[in-house]
Structures are given as C-alpha cells and as structure tokens.
Design a protein around this nucleic acid. Structure first.
Length: 278
DNA sequence: CAACTTAACGTCAGCATAGC
DNA sequence: GCTATGCTGACGTTAAGTTG
C-alpha cells in the first residue's frame, strides 16, 4: 500500500480509556456485599433474608453459578416471567431463591464459594475463565441448535448444504442456514436457525434475515425457521415479527428445540412432495 | 497456509415508559 | 418524583470459510 496510507495508519489511537482497576459499585451494591461478607452461615434462609433487604446482591449471588447479569435477566424471564430481580426479590424472596436453587444449585454454590479462601491466582483464573467463556461458549449455543437440525436433515439421507445462500425470485438471493438439496438455484427447501441466549441487535438482524428469506422464496420453495434460546424471551418484539411471517404462511414452519419432532415430520412431507426421497 | 472475509453470539448503555 | 423495567442499537470477540 502507499506510503500515504501507511502514514495515515500511524495516526490511529486507542479510543477506550485503559480499563479502570476497581469497578465502580453503587452504594446499594456495596451495602449488600457488606452484609454478605458478615454472614456467618450461607443457607437458603440467609440468602432469602439478604435479597429481601438488599435485592442488589442478586447479580453477585448468581455469578456463583456462572450467570452474568444478562443471563440472569433471561433466566428470570424464562422461569418466573419477570424482567428484573429487584421487585421480585423484595416481594417473593423465598420463591426467587428456591427457584434459582432448584434450577442451578444456587445455595450450595454460594455457600461453597463463600467459605473458600481465595488466592491471587484464583482470582486470575476466574477472570480468564469468564472472559473466555463469554466469547467461545456463546458461539456453541447457536451452533448446538444448528447441529440438532442438521442431524434431522441427515437422517433423511438427502443432499444438503449448511450455512449457504439460495436464489429465489427475480435475481435476488438470500442467506440461509440450510438448503436442500443444495444452495444457489437448486434450493428447494431452505431454513434459518437462530439460537440466542442473550439479547441484542443481532436478534433484529436475524429477523431481517428470515424476512428476506420469506420475501425471496419462490412459490415452490419450502421455508422453515428454527428459533430458541432465552434471548428471544427478552426480545419478543422481534420474535413476534417472525411469528407473523409464520401466521401469514410466508414461511412454512416455525419451531423451537422442543418442537423439532414436528419439524422432522413436516420436512418428511415436503421431501416426499418434492420427490427428493430415494 | 497465511491473510482476509463473513458471520456467529454476548454485553451493555441510554432513553422511554411503567409502577410505586 | 424516583426507581425498576422495557426496548433498542452500538460494540466486542471468536470461529469458520475463502482466496491467492
């Protein structure tokens, strides 16, 4: 590249300030942690008492079972139908603790980690595990859903292609997560697979993608969507847009992991109608 | 096979709105 | 009026796929 470009490159700087060494905690959070620190014995009653008076202890407590703040919000939506922890911690602290304990073994985890004496290295390890978990493990959640769907497609012993594009109406094409028997102009059955345990504009992007598939599809093409994950529960406006596509029959099927049996049956019918089965 | 491109999911902040 | 929750979009990191 040109010398001018190299010169331009040399003028770049880091935008973010160096990360602060000590996280800023609110007074409410600090107070909650002081109480936790002073608690001699951790049991269900102690935690119930703690969160009833100090709901802001919740994100700290659930970190003991590997839940981030966002994951906590998602799980509360799934398990209790609420979007936050403060109100429910004050009103139904017992139910909140019991639910999380049943699902994640919260009390035991907090108790164990409360007693543990932590070394410097322990802290370093924890930091590393969390930051790595964030990026790598999250990739797998979406991939797992893809793999489940791929297994079903495989069971029919037909040619297919994962993560590709297909041609539809006019000169338009669209991305899809699977295509049978192949992508491009040969696609006869296509589908989108969108698993999210968290929220974000990525879910809006996913809806846009599914919408695009529905728009581009040819009359004879079958279109399916498989969605799942607690992220959708917190992004229902986006989920509804996909559901409407299904209600209007602009896509032929909409499934979650627990509905994959129906997907298999519907796919079987479609393959038979298209004479793709051997 | 290294460089590059595309696409995957998660975290968080900011503003709007609801609820006490 | 203040706090909790709802809604939205920008941003971060990594893996898989592509290309020369």
């Amino acid at each position: 590249m040109s010398a001018e470009f190299d010169e331009f490159l040399s003028k770049f700087s880091r935008l973010r300030d160096q990360p602060a060494n000590s996280a800023r905690l609110s007074d409410a959070e600090r107070k909650a942690l002081d109480i936790l620190k002073a608690t001699a014995t951790i049991d269900a009653a102690a935690l119930t008492d703690l969160i009833e008076r100090h709901p802001h202890a919740m994100p700290f407590l659930v970190s003991c079972v590997g839940l981030s703040q966002e994951q906590l919000k998602g799980e509360l939506k799934r398990l209790l139908g609420v979007g936050g922890w403060v109100k429910i911690a004050r009103r139904e602290p017992k139910r909140l603790i019991q639910t999380l304990d049943l699902e994640f073994g919260l009390v035991e985890a907090v108790s164990r980690q409360h007693q543990h004496s932590w070394s410097f290295v322990d802290v370093l390890v924890e930091r590393r595990v969390w930051s790595q978990h964030r990026a790598t493990a999250s990739q797998n959640t979406g991939r797992q859903l893809e793999d489940l769907v791929e297994e079903i497609i495989k069971s029919f012993d037909v040619p297919y292609k994962m993560r590709t594009r297909f041609d539809g109406r006019g000169n338009e094409d669209a991305p899809c997560d699977f295509a049978i028997p192949a992508g491009g102009r040969n696609a006869q059955i296509v589908g989108a697979i969108k698993g999210f345990d968290s929220t974000g504009s990525k879910l809006t992007d996913a809806v846009t993608e599914v919408t695009k598939v529905a728009e581009v599809r040819l009359p004879g093409q079958y279109v399916y969507a498989v969605v799942d994950g607690i992220g959708w529960l917190r992004r229902q406006a986006d989920l509804k847009r996909i559901f409407e596509l299904y209600e209007q029959r602009r896509i032929d099927g909409l499934y979650t992991k627990r509905l994959l049996d129906s997907f298999k049956a519907d796919l079987s019918d479609a393959l038979r109608r298209l004479n793709l089965l051997k």
